[in-house]
Amino acid sequence: MSPAPATTAEKTQPGGLVLLCLASWAIPGIGHIWLGRRAKGFVFLIALPLMFAIGLALHGRLFSFDTSDVLTPLEAGAQLGIGLTYFLAGPFGAGKGDVRAITYEYGISFLIVAGLLNLLVVIDAYDIALGRK
């Protein structure tokens, strides 16, 4: 009698889980692609950076971890959820924000929600790796 095949949870080691979560955070959807959920992964890979890019195009501002205001670090943390894209935007001159633009608040909403959605994607990849889904 052959042994039962190892589940995803049995194959995933703690170090692998950390790496999976980091990769999934850094590049949206990579965690799902890694775990064989390619279709879902590619949707996240396209949709989330595109949503973030639309936020930048709408003159949204990327917040820094400035503790002089209570809400600013929270907004920065939410935006940081998008991963490497957050760090790539600065050198390209994006994310300075233009408070005079009519789309400024919309842009910030796109940036924050894209980051928060990517954090949900990371949690989903973690659950899949543990065999919960």
């Binding site: 879902k40 949707v43 996240f44 949709a47 989330l48 595109l50 949503m51 639309i54 195009a57 709408l58 009519i102 789309t103 919309y106 909403s109 796109f110 929600v113 894209a114 959605l117 949900l120 994607v121 989903d124």
Partner: peptide, 23 residues
């Protein structure tokens, strides 16, 4: 893109897409 309705529709599209694919 200065139409509030269009921006709301684009925002709703992306959020719905990600939630539906996740769930």
């Amino acid at each position: 893109m200065h139409s509030h309705l269009l921006m709301m529709a684009v925002f709703a599209f992306f959020v719905s897409l990600v939630f539906a694919v996740l769930a």
